[in-house]
Amino acid sequence: MNRYLSIHIKKELHTAEGRFPLSVQLDIEKGEFVALTGPSGSGKTTLLRLIAGLTKSDQGQILFNDTVWSDHSKQQFLPPQKRSIGFVFQDYALFPNMTVQQNLTFALDKSAPSSEVENIIEMIDLTALANRFPHQLSGGQQQRVALARALVRKPKILLLDEPLSALDTAMRERLQDDLKRLHEDYKLTTILVTHNEKEIFKLADRAIVLETGKIIDKGNPEDILSKKGIFATIQKMEIDGKNVKLTCQRNGDLLTLILPNKMAEKYQVGEVIFIN
């Protein structure tokens, strides 16, 4: 396999489930679309932040096209500014003081022509929104601007941290189509953190399942998802004597789990769990 982006790192995580090491060995090919999935608190966002240089690892290295992005043993660390990445945050992180156009222009390198912004605005269909401020946009529109902004600098790696999780189904599907089209047109190496199985099926060349800091499964999306494990979001928790009844939702279907109190303690409503 081509080692376009090569990640071999360790990082101590402190989560609601306790402390455990995030330990990942992962090589990503040029142009690949990788979906990163797994229960809440398994280290997916941290992994994305390590790749972006927003968090430092405790051990190991990240190499991009034979350039060292970080190497703990040699005390080398390339700051996020110098890595060719586009990062889309879960809550968009648009700059509230700038219009859509200004958000995109801010992202542009000083040497790049301003027509780049126009191209992106057209490509992501933002012309009508160019002069609006982020608070005048819907969630879906904000997310499209965030995606456009991440693409302005023509990054080599696109990192998406659950970018569609806060959107309704229709908007989600539209953005999935946008992402698919962009990926087909530009073959941009992309890593997407997601809980949504449909999204993995539709977009990803490869799925990686992370649990308590370790890759427990990887392969093509169909193989991964057809194995007995599934992800579901807890909708309701009801105490029933010594047990807790969990009502979980999975892509529109509801399923019910009965767990002993002790086991259910660590879960809460809204959390995504892995059932096998």
């Binding site: 990062f87 809550d91 992180a93 992202a107 600098r153």
Partner: peptide, 10 residues
């Protein structure tokens, strides 16, 4: 993440 977004934009 406002500052972080700005850092990732170089």
């Amino acid at each position: 993440n406002l500052a972080e977004a700005s850092y990732t934009l170089g």
